[in-house]
Design a protein around this nucleic acid. Structure first.
Lengths: 232, 232
DNA sequence: GAGATGCTTCGACTACGGTCGAAGTATGGA
DNA sequence: TCCATACTTCGACCGTAGTCGAAGCATCTC
């Protein structure tokens, strides 16, 4: 046998609870220091240092030295997608973490998934965009329509800039809490950034959850209406 | 913290070399017995039994009892996709298994990926289908066109039957050896089955590689021509 | 029923990897 | 220069999980 790539290495890398917690925390998109990651992993700094070295060697993390801090982020979008897809699979098989906790409802409602919006609101946004034909859901993929290009210009997103980048504009990302797709890719990122800029929402300190202001929530819901609750 | 699904569990599940080898072998799409899986894992039957119980409990494998044998397959397409995406990621980070071995070229050329064709030939087939507009590559997804529907009817595939099933018709699957997409979904499965039926190709005994007959290869290459080698 | 084959369970061994205390190195600030 | 902070390295400890031999079920063949 011994054919092809070695999935055991990355599996083992992700398979340690402390490391898994660190990776999950980094899915929030923010760069975190070794000390912060040690806290989320529930371990001492020495142990965290060893873990981080392994994750870096495995190509999952990217360190950035800044003064006497070392900030870590997920290596790239591919790494983020891998973690997200594992979360989706784990959720589909009922591998949930022990205590649901009080923060969970907020997390299910709206959270950051690497750099775009996920959760109930993320799914709702994509549904609404598809319903109004701003985005075409064709096959298992997503594509921006001409009409959508207008729409996003109005919202205040420079689509031309996004198109210039190498990163795909639209990507569908399976939401582990809703078990349906939400919008990723550079457009998904731009939308979330836009909400932050407008002050509709803000990220929370130690969590991935996104908190909408009362006014922001009203505007968001108005901008992305859902006609009828259609099953996926 | 403790938010969301537990990726550490499945990570650890995949993280053991013996289990990873078993899972990789099952990506070949064939159901294998516990004894066969013990062999690919390089372990005794007792140990394999314990591993298989864990994989089953984790929702990765599905056992089917048949006489005094127990056949195992990957639980579903989601499980297969997870393994494949981990292979893709592992390959992108250079996590290759130790010895490349003599079988590797055959594997890179054409192999089974759960139930459809992968490798150089799989990528070539999709490229060709997209070039002739039988399949639209829109955004990051794939969709069958009206023209494509005709094409596949001619080849001898009943598209209407496939449409009736719940499973997506077209799916793009990242090829770990080519690092580009090939065609998955029920259409990808039907195409590979079609090649087997026609005697163009056959699967090999202990491996995932697909061997084309000289005549089959000629017909395959004629059916799926590539104009110019375009970069992805 | 007897024997062979396929698989599981039990129990004991072992090793690998995660863990932390203590000490060492780098960076920043006063 | 001196100290504090951020992190790494070293070394030792320990637990978990993978491993196999032996024995126990289950199923098929004759």
């Amino acid at each position: 046998m011994k054919e092809g790539p070695d999935i055991a290495q990355i599996g083992a890398l992700i398979g340690d609870p402390a490391r898994a917690n660190m990776l999950a925390a980094l899915t929030g998109g923010k760069a975190l220091t070794a000390t912060e990651l040690a806290a989320v992993g529930g371990i001492t700094l020495q142990t965290a240092s060893a873990h981080l070295a392994k994750l870096e060697a495995g190509g999952l993390l990217l360190p950035r030295k800044q003064g006497r801090h070392r900030y870590f982020t997920l290596a790239d979008e591919a790494a983020a997608r891998l973690i997200e897809s594992m979360m989706g699979f784990a959720a589909s098989r009922g591998h949930l973490r022990h205590q649901p906790g009080p923060k969970e409802p907020a997390l299910r409602k709206a959270r950051i998934c690497y750099d775009h919006l996920a959760g109930d609101y993320g799914v709702r946004m994509l549904d609404s965009l598809v319903a109004r034909r701003a985005i075409d859901a064709v096959g298992d993929g997503l594509a921006l329509t001409a009409k959508g290009e207008e729409t996003f210009q109005c919202i205040g997103i420079n689509v031309a800039d996004l198109k210039a980048s190498r990163r795909p504009l639209c990507r569908s990302c399976l939401d582990w809490s809703e078990r349906r797709a939400h919008l990723a890719g550079s457009l998904g990122k731009a939308l979330l950034a836009n909400f932050f800029d407008k002050g509709w929402a803000r990220r929370t300190a130690g969590s991935r959850s996104v908190i909408f202001s009362p006014d922001g929530e009203r505007q968001f819901l108005a901008l992305f209406p859902v006609e009828t609750p259609v099953a996926a």
